[in-house]
C-alpha cells in the first residue's frame, strides 16, 4: 500500500518534471520577504555560484544559515555588521554591501523561496 503510494507520487513528480520547464538555475533562491517592501529589487541567491567557492558547511554551519527557504530573515544592518552574508560580502572576500545591484537584481514581484528546483520545484513544492 505504502509502496504503491510512493510509486504514484514518484510518477507524478516525473510527469511534473516534463510539464513544467525548469527556467531558473537549479537551487536559485529568491529573497523577497523584505526587499521590495524596503524599496529595492528582490535578491537572487545562486547556490551554484557559491558552492564553487565555498562548501555548504561554511554558510550552513559557520555562518548560521538554516537549510530551509524562508527560515533566514537577514537584514542589511546585520550584513553591514558582518553577520550572515556580511561574513564574506565585506569588500575583502566578496563585494561589499554597497554594491546593491549585484545581489538585489531580481524582477519586481517575485515570490520568495527556491525557484530553480529541477523536478520537485524545491522543498515542499514538488
Amino acid at each position: 500500500m505504502n509502496a504503491a503510494v510512493v510509486r504514484i507520487a514518484l510518477l507524478a513528480a516525473c510527469l511534473a518534471a516534463t510539464a513544467i520547464p525548469a527556467v531558473a538555475e537549479y537551487g536559485d533562491v529568491v529573497l523577497n520577504h523584505r526587499s521590495e517592501a524596503e524599496g529595492v529589487r528582490p535578491v537572487i541567491f545562486p547556490h551554484w555560484f557559491h558552492r564553487i567557492r565555498f562548501r555548504c558547511k561554511v554558510c550552513h554551519s559557520e555562518l548560521g544559515f538554516r537549510m530551509r527557504a524562508g527560515a533566514n530573515v537577514v537584514t542589511m544592518k546585520e550584513i553591514v555588521e558582518g553577520k550572515f552574508c556580511g561574513m564574506c560580502h565585506n569588500g575583502q572576500i566578496a563585494w561589499a554591501p554597497d554594491r546593491c545591484d549585484l545581489c538585489h537584481s531580481g524582477k519586481p514581484g517575485l515570490k520568495p523561496g527556491i525557484q530553480g528546483g529541477h523536478s520537485t520545484l524545491g522543498p515542499g513544492l514538488w
Binding site: V23, A24, D28, R41, D101, C103, S105, G106, K107
Partner: peptide
Amino acid sequence: DGLHDPASPGTRQL
C-alpha cells in the same frame, strides 16, 4: 531566466 531583471545593472555584471 525569469528571475533576474534584465533592466538591473547588476544582471549584466554577474
